[in-house]
Design a protein around this nucleic acid. Structure first.
Lengths: 257, 257
DNA sequence: AAGTGGTCTAGACCACTTT
DNA sequence: AAGTGGTCTAGACCACTTC
């Protein structure tokens, strides 16, 4: 209950198993406690979390320790600090967060949010490969969506989304078809499922006839294939996204550091 | 000289210019001082920097302030902390640092360092576009290198490197031709120029006849084009690298966070 | 035992925002 | 004026490495 009491700290000498890497410092325990509350939805995206002083009192630790815990959460972009105002649960419903997951930038000019055309949206059974990636059973109900995104009238991104039906139960095909904004904002506000991290796998591939027609390129033309796996709290995978980017006037921008 | 005295802190009321964003906290001033010494080569890659207590005494601030400065340098991977041993200037000559800038991973199995075949290595005049990127004058002397990298005998990466001749004065074409290891390690150990950051721009392109022959793909086959601009201390650009990756059995891996 | 980085505390004060 | 995050200090102790 109280992380500061000796009972909740790890004993200096490990009694049992040999290779257990059980130690973690107090601030990291506090971080986990805050994480649990975030994950449980105790504070919703956009809401302020309690002040550092408040949390320090709750957990019976010093403000500095809470601070270090929140430092890490802020570095992972799970919360957002604003001096003088407070610390807020990060959200996809902000202009600044809009492009965090879209690395395709125009060669000239500024990035804008694309126009969406939904090509298809329905429920399907999970194919084996998708099921494996999302850690569900093959054949489980999935939400599937296929859409075309255009910049300034030029079709540029063709993509498929797969979401586990079990998590997004109330999500109707109609709702998706009419919704034109950023997907992650919809999933967050309507289902409280926040994407916090993703891995992408990029390849150059040749356009098949279908993709070529939709993206208005020649069949066999090179396309940038991007397969994304997105995760929510607890490293739980919740979306597979397979995209094809036309890179004639856009490029995928990446920072190595 | 002494950042802790009031004289070197910013005055609360800015006297002169209107929009000067001149304030920075003490720990960031300390960070700059350490950075200057790193940049000046006072401590070489792989060497330990002075201990936190030592630095605190030198700069006449508390250990906690030095610590926060080093925290940021460690986060930017300019230094490496090792508990019980000290803090060390980061280097490319370590196994762990070898893959920091190579995002191409095999679809199955573990990443290995590729076999290099140097196709070409000589001095050239800088073309306009390269000169612009490296912030030198068009026509300045450049070191140019073209090489083919193979994994398990399969040619996979074809790339061109451009380096400003002025910075790497003593670098002979012969030295480059015989050297088969990681380029960044060579540049660091022999010239003290350490790459600390890079931006990459990715596109899908069609292989031209030359690239196709070297990479053993059909002309017109899709290749992943990667243009990298690498920076050293002070955000000074020091390398342009233009690569073509064959992504049949490899993929470019990226983490979005 | 001594030296290094890593954690934790308690308190002071600063900078920013809202009331 | 009050509340929030941000900075800075001084000191204690822990964990790890080397001597």
């Amino acid at each position: 209950m109280n992380p500061a009491t000796s009972s909740s700290r790890q004993p200096k000498a490990e009694a049992g198993a040999s290779a257990a890497p059980t130690f973690s410092p107090l601030y990291r325990q506090i971080k986990q406690l805050i994480l649990q509350r975030l994950q449980a939805g105790e504070w919703r995206p956009g809401d302020p979390i309690p002040s550092e002083i408040d949390l320090a009192a709750r957990f019976n630790v010093s403000q500095g320790t809470v601070r270090k815990a929140i430092d890490e959460l802020a570095a992972e972009k799970l919360v957002l600090r604003r001096q003088g105002k407070g610390t807020f649960v990060a959200t996809h419903s902000e202009a600044r967060a809009q492009f965090r997951f879209l690395r395709l930038k125009p060669d000239v000019g500024d990035a804008h949010y694309p126009d969406n055309t939904i090509l298809e949206a329905r429920r399907l059974r999970a194919p084996a490969d998708i099921a494996r990636q999302l850690d569900v059973r093959s054949g489980d109900s999935m939400i599937f969506m296929r859409r075309l995104q255009s910049f300034g009238g030029a079709p540029t991104i063709l993509e498929e989304l797969w979401l586990p039906g079990a998590i997004f139960k109330g999500l109707s095909v109609e709702r998706m078809q009419q919704y034109k904004g950023p997907m992650y904002a919809l999933l967050e506000t309507e289902f409280g499922v926040r994407m916090i991290r993703a891995t992408e796998s990029l390849r150059a591939v040749a356009a098949d006839a279908d993709a070529a027609a939709l993206l208005r390129v020649k069949p066999g033309a090179p396309l940038l294939s991007v397969e994304r796996l997105s995760y929510t709290y607890g490293d739980k995978p919740v979306e597979v996204r397979r995209s094809f980017y036309v890179t004639a006037h856009h490029h995928y921008e990446n920072e190595l550091s």
